[in-house]
Amino acid sequence: MARARRTRAVPPAYLLIAPSVVFMALLLGWPMVSGILQAFVGPDGVTGAYLQRMNSDPAFWSAVRNTLLLIVVLLPLQFLFALVMAFLLQARPKGHALYFYLWAIPLAVSDLAAGLVWLSIFTDRGYLNSVLETLGLGSVSWLSYENYGSMFVAILIAELWRATSLVLVIVISGMQGIPKDYDEAANVFGASYLQRLRHVWLPLLKPSLQVALILRTILAFQTFAVAQALTGQDFPVLVGETYRWYTALQNPHVASAIAMVVMAVSMVTAVIYLKTLRDSTKGAS
């Protein structure tokens, strides 16, 4: 039957995806082409000068390092945290529906507002130092440029707070579709809680987790408001640099060149993820 579907049902699939392809192409086709060309074409024709400018900007390489470091550290923590939250809810404690709602709230907070609130916590005369001061422990300059470690941790915590809800909601919505019988069957055969997590829940959640991973990674490359609110220019990230070149420095060419880097890295990651996604769909069906 599966084979029959594959040979005969090709046209409906294309019909179903056609509107989205047409919509995206009409709307974003030209802007994307012109955006991409901008990185390589100047008033005097094709040039590598903008890439060179980008490369020679001292902030660029630290932005690359910061962005990658942040994503590499943030994403595993975030997924771990989201899974812990999801399984806490899955144990259905009293008031789980309320907990879920409260845990999803950061989703509603725009990244600008999120940056603002964490700034009010970590700034020199902020809430965190207020607590320390009240306890008699003295203040710490968390966001000082001299203190890369604490600056990084502050951004990490803020991003963990802001964006984990996204993963949580995807995982929870994925859990809704998983039949309880699997877990119950495993239980009957005496599997421990951890064994069931490892062999029943995680494999079944894999499609959701992978979608969450792809989306979260791509979006993580796109956000800079929190880092900028907390540290200004002291912790540059790539998209923030694009924005700075575009607005403050009024050089759309270099901005596009940096955007190309963001895009290239995002796409490479996406290809890697999609390869894993394909394997899993085979496994799941």
Partner: peptide
Amino acid sequence: MSDSFFSQPFSRRTALKIGLGAA
């Protein structure tokens, strides 16, 4: 069963509905 699923006429009608909605 699934080979007749989404046979052509239905798909067109669906597409039309979607198109109208989008417009």
